[in-house]
Amino acid sequence: MRSRPRPAPDVTRPDSARRGVARARCRERLAQWMFIVPAAAYLLLFFGYPIVKNIVMSFQQYSITTFYTGAAPFVGLRNYSEILSSDLFSEALLTTVLFTAGSIFGQFVLGLAFALFFQRSFPLGRVLRSLLLLPWLLPLVASGTTWRWMLDADSGVVNGALRGLRLLPSGVPWLTGTSQALVSVTLINVWVGIPFNTTILYGGLQDVPTHLYEAAKLDGAGPVTTFRHVTWPLLRPVVSVVLVLDVVYTVKVLDIILTVTGGGPANATETIATLSYELSFRQFEFGRGAAMSTVLVVVSLVFALVYLRANRRAQSG
């Protein structure tokens, strides 16, 4: 936020006038604060408090009993050493990385392709573009459950189609194979994420001045060259913002995995987020669950910082 330039103090004025100016300035400063207070209070209450509480909880032995007795003894770094030393953690971390990287790659590439596609005007283009938003509008639990049915190995429509087309007579164990399940949830998450990517990238494309395209055309540039030397450089700031937001949104995905596979089969789709949920709300180990989510917060924070930097570059550039 940039503050307004203040008038320079006028030394030639008499004392009383100067006092008046001081009073006015004080009032102005008060007014500035009054504008900040609601937002600051909101942030502190609904973002600051939960995060601080979560961090404090991660150093405590916080169990069901705590809810009744209020006693939550501090245990230092025990929660952290326990979660970090379990073999499930490294597995889940790897799954989280694969899931995030895969989802973002798919979402971004397809999102960009759709954005470029819809940039041309053609009949029904607007209708199709708004239909593309559908996955975004559906409740995730509803679409997750539908995907679960569609990907069922025996009676699912996807395997039915593969069998009907005689491509794979045995079908694919989409949700029950340990290596396929992660691919399946990643694909579902790509499907969920395309609308977001398309919308933001489409907005970015609208900002590219048309005369540049015309100039490129006059210079004899083909579509690929135009994209490489005109579209892409001008889209760069938007791209970095989209990618960072994608990371922050994907790292914390919980509902899709819980409804589609529940972390299974054999922990194949267990991520840091689902592990944290399981510790807190299935095993009621709130302390360890909090430690796990702190790890998640740190990961998101790193990318949020990257986002802020990218954002600044986008504004200045």
Partner: peptide, 20 residues
């Protein structure tokens, strides 16, 4: 019990998928 139950369902999943 919740801990043992977690162990049991994980074992079922690992065995049925052929992981272990």
């Amino acid at each position: 019990w919740p801990k043992a139950a977690t162990g049991i369902y994980t074992a079922i999943q690992s065995a049925l998928t052929g992981e272990q």
